[in-house]
């Protein structure tokens, strides 16, 4: 199968072998059904072993899989009548972020997300899903619009990070991200954020100040890419695998740290194996959380978001301390 990942190779090999034997029994006059049965049992066990013990680095690989479903894939499978809106009304339209209005089971919503490409051509157009300031400003414009028309906001997070470039700095990448964090804090509508691939640093967080935060099982959310962390901490980017483990970037890690509300289970082997099935898993959790949040008043929604982020962090107090 195309796009298989290193860690799942044993499964794929065994599956191929079974297929081969089945093909063989069709043409030849030999009964191999008992062998096939045995192998299928072994496959089941192997799948369980491998897919239930995915290492952080393997999750990073799944999160970066070229065929991994993107924001537009989920939009197509989750919402009706999606209408895309372009531009920040200021500088331009950044295609690394898509956004617009749609209905979710009849409920009007605003949907915004990072958008990667699936091939080189599309990736160039979408800048590999790495937004410029105008992308964040477009997102903010759409959020404010949602606030006006009292539509819940659903954000899909999937970026390696905000784009590090000359033009991005000139137009205020820092300010654009900071402004989103600040303004999202004040939105009077429910905001639900779902990390569907890579959640890369401030560029991800700029769509991430929500009442609820979810992550797909094989997505990551981190302050820096494993490669970047390895380069800074140990001056060696080839230690990315080690960094992926020590930085605690996977969905189970973030659940444990109390940062996300829940993990959305993935299709065995990764969301790219069944987009429709994955969208259904997302739909279940969206329905549940929207139902809860729509019960809250505007003030309660703002307070809920405030309390959520206000409580993040670990620290202690010294008895003997140095005074300035």
């Amino acid at each position: 199968m195309a796009g298989e990942l290193e860690f799942e190779r044993p499964v794929v090999q065994l599956r191929n072998k079974i297929a081969e034997l089945k093909e063989f029994t069709k043409t030849a006059d030999v009964d191999l059904s008992s062998e096939i049965e045995k192998l299928e049992l072994r496959l089941e066990k192997l799948e369980k072993d491998i897919y239930e013990n995915i290492k952080p680095w393997d999750r990073v690989q799944i999160a970066r899989h070229p065929n991994r479903p993107t924001t537009l894939d989920y939009i197509a499978n989750l919402f009706e009548g999606f209408f895309e809106c372009h531009g920040d009304r200021n500088f331009g339209d950044d295609e690394a972020i898509v956004g617009g209005i749609a209905k979710f089971r009849g409920l009007p919503v605003t949907v915004i997300g990072h958008q990667r490409g699936k091939d080189t051509k599309e990736n160039i157009r979408r800048n590999f899903g790495m937004p410029h300031p105008e992308g964040y400003r477009k997102a903010l414009r759409l959020m404010k619009q949602a606030d006006k028309f009292k539509r819940p906001i659903i954000c899909f997070i999937d970026t390696k990070g905000a784009y590090p470039g000359k033009a991005a700095e000139e137009r205020g990448q820092s300010e654009a991200i900071a402004r989103n964090l600040f303004e999202m804090a004040g939105l009077k509508v429910p905001v639900i954020c779902i990390v569907i691939g890579e959640g890369g640093s401030g560029g991800a967080l700029a769509l991430g100040v929500g009442n609820r935060m979810y992550m797909l099982e094989n997505s990551t959310y981190s302050v820096i890419s494993p490669e970047g962390a390895a380069a800074i901490l140990w001056k060696d980017s080839s230690l990315a695998k080690k960094a992926a483990e020590s930085m605690k970037i996977t969905a189970p890690n973030l659940k444990e740290l109390g940062i996300i509300d829940d993990i959305i289970p993935e299709i065995k082997g990764g969301a790219h194996k069944d987009v429709k099935g994955q969208a259904e898993a997302i739909e279940t959790i969206l329905k549940k959380s929207l139902k809860e949040l729509l019960e809250l008043t505007e003030e309660e929604l703002v307070a809920d978001r405030y309390n959520k982020f206000r409580s993040i962090g670990e620290y202690s107090f010294l008895k003997d301390y140095i005074s300035i």
Partner: peptide, 16 residues
């Protein structure tokens, strides 16, 4: 770096 995503979330905390 050493506090990972908790450090990242401080950006949101201070902003809210």
């Amino acid at each position: 770096m050493q506090e990972g995503v908790l450090s990242l979330m401080q950006m949101a905390k201070t902003s809210v």
